[in-house]
């Protein structure tokens, strides 16, 4: 089911990508290759599981950009499918909308939520100057399947995450390669991204969590890296664990980016050893 849904998403992405390549669309693409990064599972521009201080797409000062994205993760007992749309202006403001669906193989059924995101670059630049690129953002999440979350102790069917991010690229870092690092501090009440609701019987207040990514460009088109995401732990029925992944990103052109990763989500809802594969496709306009 999920594979089909993903195939459909990728299919749409590919068709969009191909039609883009065939037309002579003049894209606003003033940024350098890969500096728009990719799109995270919550629809915000970033890595795979972490939103970055970068704004999505290749829109520079005074330019507009749009990305269409599909993400998919397949771990032991769950499958996460995400489709998102992201608008950016001026390399300054990013507005995103994402729909997540988590398929519960073992338990049966699925969990869904919608995420509305806004991010604003405050200062600095990813590539130029000494100051890192600094951004603030929020992700307003609305759970569409609140029955199960409520039953396991969630306190709310919607919630808003607030985050601060700093990102920097070093053009000639160690090994004379280009490196990129991002740190994100997030205030959240979301259980498993919000798919299990917000707040819980164990804790119903905001937690501050740290998220970080580090990547190295092997050349201009290939990025390898790692990510770590701390998680809150609000529900007493099952402990929530931090997430991590190792990824390879491919940026063949400014129109398309593809990421594959190995993700380790530890134990989710009491089911242990949730490791598996992750893939995402981004088409930029």
């Amino acid at each position: 089911m999920m594979i089909n849904a993903f195939a459909k998403q990728v299919g749409i992405g590919l068709i969009v990508g191909i039609s883009l390549a065939c037309q002579t669309v003049y894209a606003d693409d003033g940024k350098l290759l890969a500096t728009g990064a990719v799109t995270s599972i919550e629809g915000s521009g970033g890595g795979g599981i972490v939103p970055w201080a970068t704004t999505a797409s290749y829109a520079e000062e005074g330019e507009w950009g749009v990305t269409v994205n599909a993400n998919f993760a397949d771990v032991e007992d769950f499958q996460l499918g995400v489709q998102s749309l992201n608008f950016t202006y001026d390399n300054r403001v990013e507005v995103s909308f994402a729909q997540q669906r988590l398929g519960l193989n073992t338990i049966g059924g699925d969990l869904k939520q919608d995420i509305f995101g806004v991010k604003v670059r405050l200062a600095g630049d990813l590539v130029y100057g000494d100051m890192p690129q600094l951004s603030v953002g929020l992700q307003h999440k609305r759970n569409q399947t609140y029955g199960l979350p409520a039953a396991v102790g969630a306190q709310d069917d919607s919630g808003t995450d607030f985050y601060f991010s700093a990102a920097k690229a070093w053009l000639a870092g160690p090994l004379e390669r280009t490196w990129v690092a991002n740190y994100t501090l997030r205030a959240t009440k979301a259980n498993q991204l919000g798919l299990l609701g917000f707040g819980g019987d164990k804790n119903d207040s905001y937690d501050y969590v740290s998220e970080a990514s580090l990547g190295m460009f092997v050349n201009r088109h290939w990025l390898v890296g790692v990510e770590y995401r701390q998680k809150p732990d609000n529900l007493s029925f099952a402990k929530e664990y931090d997430w991590r992944d190792v990824f390879v990103g491919w940026f063949p052109t400014k129109s398309v980016a593809l990421v594959v990763a190995y993700v380790d989500l530890k134990s989710i809802a009491g089911l242990p050893d949730q490791t598996g594969a992750y893939a995402s496709l981004q088409v930029s306009f």
Binding site: W170, L171, A172, L175, E176, R177, T178, V218, N219, R220
Partner: peptide, 10 residues
Amino acid sequence: PVSAQNQLLD
């Protein structure tokens, strides 16, 4: 080479 490219760009 990429390493020299990066140093010059830097």
